[in-house]
Amino acid sequence: MYELYLTHVKGNADKITYIAIDEAQEIEGWERFVRGLEEKCKAKIIVTGSSAKLLSSEYTTLLSGRHVEVRVFPLSFDEALKFKGIEFDSELQLAKNLDRIKKELVEMLNYGGFPDVVLHPEVRSELIHSYFDTVIVKDVVNRYNLRREEKIRNLAKFYISSSASRITYNSVSKFLKIPVKTVERYSEYLEKAFLIFFTRNYSQSPKAVENSPRKVYVIDNGFLKFFSTWSLGRAFETLIAQHVMRYANRRLFEVFYWYSQNAEVDIIIKNDKGSLLPIQVTYELNEENRKREIDSIKKFSKYGKTRPLIITFDQEGEVEGIKIIPAYKFLLKTFEILDSMLV
């Protein structure tokens, strides 16, 4: 096909050619073909796939130094609004469409950001269940040749129902009656398949970080709606954490949580300069939780000067020097806000 293109279509030798190969992981030896193609032609090659198998280490080793990896998450909040034609780029547009924007935020809290789920709400239950089955069967069971599919399904559903919670492999092992080593191995499979992701307890000791309980999050809120008992607080924190992880992945920053002596900060971002940004996530800051949320941030300040942030559903302002941002603003300007605070 490429030779025919060069002979009959291209014409201008200086013109850049783009070659797109979709679902490449379905063809054995695709990576050798791509490398050979890259060596013999002046073209930009885009390899795409919906399976975590595309990121296998054997592929990246063969293509080392020749590729840039881009991980495509479910839609972010601003992308979901653009999909629905809702304008928000200017302050006037934001004010004009604010009621609809908040309504769409509630939709994403409930049903997540998979493109077809956003665009076709009438079949979102079927879509979410189909995506879950695809991840479990195609990206985990078949890829790793597992014999007991029900075990990985039970573990996946447990993690989904535990989103925004701290867990240990030992506690999961006892609850599900699965050996600890199996829990550890299966957890790695689910993370590599991008169904879940983990954060660890922040410490200045690498050993303490490694040995700390993990905090688990599901990659999309749609799974929370259909595979767990839905909780507004967990759904809200999970949505914020997904956008923070998208930011950290792009910037190559680290994400933690912090827990010590009944004080907890939900999210800690550490940039490449060692700067720390503590973020508390609470749907509403009120008399009941205000002292707890603020005191935890103050206790974390022992690690150095920080510029803390509290994210709520729609409150905005400042309390004791801590900035409060409504979720819709944070989600629409995640990169801009976090870049300005992580200096």
Rank of each mutant, 00 (worst) to 15 (best):
V140T: 12
K53C: 03
E79C: 02
N262G: 00
K15A: 06
H243V: 00
G317W: 03
L239G: 07
K157F: 12
L37T: 07
Y202D: 08
E107P: 06
R148E: 14
F132T: 06
V172Q: 10
M341V: 02
L146R: 08
F88R: 09
R166G: 04
F227L: 01
A80W: 04
N262S: 12
N221E: 04
L55I: 11
K333E: 14
L155F: 07
F114M: 12
Q315V: 01
L232V: 14
L239V: 00
D116R: 15
Y217G: 06
N142C: 05
K329A: 06
D339V: 03
V70R: 15
S56G: 06
V218R: 04
R246S: 03
Y159M: 11
T312G: 01
L94A: 08
D14G: 14
V47A: 03
K151M: 07
E87S: 10
L276A: 06
E254S: 15
N97I: 07
L338D: 09
G65R: 01
Y217P: 06
F198V: 02
V183N: 05
L62W: 01
L55N: 06
E149T: 14
W258C: 02
L155W: 13
H129Q: 08
S165L: 00
Y5Q: 08
K151P: 03
Y169C: 09
Y303K: 09
K207L: 10
